[in-house]
Design a binder for these strands. Structure first.
Lengths: 190, 190, 190, 190
DNA sequence: CATGAATGAGATTTCATTCAT
DNA sequence: GATGAATGAAATCTCATTCAT
């Protein structure tokens, strides 16, 4: 089963760096050191392989987000946790993280394809998390009275912009992390 | 001549929504209401068409950024101008703007392909603008003493995250714009 | 009318160096410094252009061969004249000469296309000339009793081999010419 | 594996009768009774197929020429062997032999493409063989004092003229062979 | 005469996928 | 599980030719 893992690893890497359409099954088989038909033994096809990868990536991601504590001392701690979570996944699995932040390949965009579904769901989850959090913080007087949905959009944009910035891998990721948290604190906490 | 413009328009739209590899020359010709070979009369090939589009988009973009005034009353005005500029281009030309914020198709990633070059250059221009601006603002006491390069990365991430958020078109873009400016002001100005 | 000549010149050059199928009408128009449609103003098409060139080349060639004197003092003089004629045309018009020695493009090989016809006719003319000549020379005792049709084939092979040897242009063509005549004399005259 | 051979056989036949540019991959696949993409499974492309064929043909040809004995009783025997070798290959593999005597397709004429290289090499090998042979024969008094390089050119021209004369297949090839040897003997041996 | 723009037909090549073993 | 060989469908691109002016 090591070979199946090789296929998945190679596919993650290639899909993240070349896109779904830009990656051929031959490239995957080469990078995975297997022959092409083996891909079809383990998966129904290229699309299925992609779907499996994304599904797994989303499940892992959602379980992390779901695991974030909701009973923190301050509301800002929840923001902090969210930022830290994303910096952690960028550091540990940059390719998967990049994939779940990408737009779904046009071909797979059937209204309820797993890919489109999950991207939508991810957005909703993050949005819910942030809106709740902001509303609570503003209510308690911890946060300045910022417009809630718009600010959620901004924070999500910053997160996705950071995930997509591939050079983050090579930059001093921890100082950016600290700067991000301070940046948000100054803006939100009054 | 009108037909050449049709081709370009169709290609911008399709490349932005499906990616370079996900778009076929046949699709482009259909959407442009021309025959396929006409694409090859006006451009050397699919890649050349893509390159021409990107080059133009970058030139337009850079000339806007270069046109931003540097002698504003406050340093924050410069930040404000930069944000406004990006919200304007998102509103006016969402597809081109999306394209110049995307990663270059792997195949074109020869170290000095126009595409890779310009993406690099864009990053440097924005980075230079922000670093200068932040340093000056901190020096004059207008801005809080934030870490300069890291904060520049954060602001760029937010901008690119916003550009890539296609639904912005349908959201109340002006309230997001105002929220963004206020958000940054609170974080930076002391 | 100068432009028509340019087209013909360019076509001769390109057909001779790249073959009929290997030459595009665009290449011809470039080398002739005209636009493509002009080729179609002067000729019915690429094939017609090729045909015209070949027809002219064959007419010129045949008129030279027909002009060779038949009432020479010796039979070997006739051989000598034939060889000299070919060395002259190689020197003066290497490309046309190459073309009339080439095989007809497969596509034009309708049984009685001018091209196929003329190639056949050329062979017959040369063959007739040589067979007559050899028969007469052997009959008069001037030539050794060689087998007539086979020897005609050999001499024709040598001539066509020389015409096709493009580097002849750069070699000392006159010493090869003399060597050829001496070579044939030693072999034939007894 | 049988199918790969079919492709090669069909390609040899078609390239020899229609030229490289005049032959389409579809024609090859039809004649080989395979589908077109199979050509691309076994070869990198049309050009690669052509190159492989020529390479093999040249290797076979060179090994035959290299195998000719150099220690014959007379120098003329060496000439005789060379002529016989060429009549043998014409009889056995007329298409390959025609191909290696043809000019290289213009497109492949990169200064050191295998095709151009081998054509050059072939010329040098034959030329070396004949010059050595003629010089030795003249030195020993076996041959008349003919000009060496020019006579080599003439003999090579005759050989290539014969190889290219496709109708040789149908003519009485053995009588032409004998005539050629006698022809050369009379001209050279004194 | 001359040309810029355009096209139908077809050539080369790629690619996801399957088959036979 | 695994593979070498094979293929249908389609993508990119070329080219001789024509049209409108």
């Amino acid at each position: 089963m090591r070979k199946k893992q090789n296929i998945i690893r190679a596919a993650i890497h290639l899909f993240a760096s070349q896109g779904f359409d830009g990656t051929t099954t031959l490239q995957i088989s080469h990078e995975a050191q297997v022959t092409e038909p083996l891909i079809y033994y383990h998966f129904k096809g290229k699309e299925d392989l992609f779907t499996c990868i994304l599904e797994k990536a989303f499940v892992d991601y959602f379980s992390l987000v779901d695991g974030l504590p909701s009973d923190t001392a301050t509301q800002f701690e929840r923001i902090e946790n969210l930022i830290n979570l994303h910096f952690d996944v960028i550091a540990e699995r940059p390719d998967e993280t990049f994939l779940i932040t990408s737009t779904c390949p046009a071909k797979l965009n059937d209204l309820d394809h797993i890919c489109a579904n999950n991207i939508e769901r991810q957005r909703n989850v993050l949005n819910g998390y942030l809106c709740d959090n902001l509303t609570a913080g503003i209510g308690s007087g911890e946060f300045a009275p910022v417009p809630v949905p718009e600010t959620a959009v901004l924070i999500m944009a910053m997160i996705s912009g950071l995930v997509r910035r591939r050079s983050l891998k090579y930059e001093d990721i921890d100082s950016v992390r600290r700067a991000a948290i301070d940046f948000l604190r100054r803006s939100l906490v009054q």
